[in-house]
Write a protein that binds this DNA or RNA. Structure first.
Lengths: 245, 245
DNA sequence: CGCATAATTGATGGTTATCAAGACCAGTGG
DNA sequence: CCACTGGTCTTGATAACCATCAATTATGCG
């Protein structure tokens, strides 16, 4: 009945062709719907983790705090993402989930995954592979935090976002909306808001990026990619070994 | 016939009770054996990834290089670890694998995992959960690199190693062998070898750790853990939802 | 328009990098 | 037995990058 597009279906369909049965399984995850205002913490580290979440609209981020208030943003979530997988391994959440803007989410119980595991070897393989791909993405993040300068970090950050957005939105140009403030970008990159501002200014003066009212434009994407040795981990994945749908 | 202990069986048995069938599947992964000298690169980023590796003896590490030679060590591998999971998602390796000392490995083809997926829902669930647990471990690493001082990073590094070693070696004391030089430790923590030396000296002068001929002793583990807000991700995992063996 | 939030800019300081020299140690070969 | 070597660790001096603090200017929103 729902004629609305599903971002999760879009995202998964990018990697494999889903049959009717699999489509039904995926859509069944997006039945319920909850909305949250910008800035709200949807869960916090230590909370019991009984549910996962599909992002329907809006951006969010997962972060870990240090006791004195330092914050590290670990992952940014876009429409179509499934949030909460890392916490399946534990009984309590290891990160905080915060809405970066007004969002709509589709929560579903962890145990609904059982149905997928039992009924669809294809979706099981895909979810497993996505978990491993996410490890590589986290490794890229580690590389950026450990060994890149501030300019390289910001370049990496923007390219990574663009690559991810292009999966769900294939026709995307070199421009996208960036609903994060500079404190949040800094917390993702291990920098301060002040230095993010300065670094963005540098990149802009050098003609690599442009900004206007909440949008970023990657003017010289090749130069940005070379500066931080960027590799797109989203466009290509090895699905050759998957079982048939 | 093989009366030799299997570190992989030890590690997996820590989390679930394996039946005879599962034990046979796991042991079958450790048939072949290869040895490498200290410092050898076993594979490099870009190589085709057809095999995974179980570590039988010795330490190794996975690292990514930047084009100008900067290096980020991403993960340290101990006996019982399975190396190469993140690369299943891609056709080519994303990191270099280097032997930190003389090592013995048991390689097995990626496709041998199919047998496990088909025959053992328990092992499938365990491997999936370990992949998600590893995401959390990588997130902890991100937090350390992005938001910790050098002293906190070194404390975190040592505690993380100790927690991992205790899984396979339950009776371990507060002392362990650390076959990594300070350049390697620095590359894991986003520091230089020089600053690792200074930081180790500080911790030693403050009575938190001690070193002697390749061994580290964690004198005040509680203080170290508090300084970096350490949480052991290895001791406890949620296996309650696993299917029976 | 007025308010709160976010971004910018400047001045200063701290943490860590860089460069360089020396100490220590294990192994090697004369 | 000892000089020699290569690797590792330590220590000092200096410099770079980024943090911190503070003030000002945009920006968005009721």
């Amino acid at each position: 009945m729902s004629s609305q597009r599903s971002c999760l279906v879009d995202k998964l369909s990018y990697y494999v062709r889903l049959g009717d049965g699999d489509l039904g399984l995926v859509r069944s995850l997006e039945k319920a719907e909850e909305s949250y205002a910008s800035g709200v913490d949807i869960y916090r580290g230590g909370d019991a983790t009984k549910r996962l979440w599909v992002v329907k609209s809006g951006w969010l981020f997962s972060a870990t705090d240090l006791p004195d208030g330092r914050r590290q943003i670990v992952r940014i979530h876009h429409p179509g993402d499934v949030i909460g997988f890392p916490d399946i391994a534990f009984e309590n959440a290891t990160t905080n989930l915060t809405a970066a803007e007004p969002v709509t989410l589709c929560p579903f119980p962890k145990k609904d995954l059982d149905v997928i595991f039992q009924q669809s070897p294809l979706l099981t393989a895909l979810l497993f592979t996505l978990a491993l791909r996410d490890q590589v993405v986290l490794i890229d993040h580690i590389r950026a935090l450990g060994r890149m300068s501030a300019e390289e970090k910001v370049a990496f950050f923007l390219l990574d976002l663009a690559a991810r957005l292009r999966i769900v939105n294939p026709g995307m140009s070199d421009t996208f909306r960036l609903p994060l403030n500079q404190s949040e970008i800094g917390d993702a990159l291990g920098l301060t808001n002040v230095y993010v501002s300065r670094t963005f200014g540098m990149l802009e003066r050098r003609g690599l990026v442009a900004r206007s009212n909440g949008f970023v434009r990657l003017i010289d994407e090749a130069a940005l990619a070379e500066s931080c040795d960027f590799i797109d981990r989203y466009a290509g994945m090895d699905t050759s070994w998957f079982p048939p749908g």
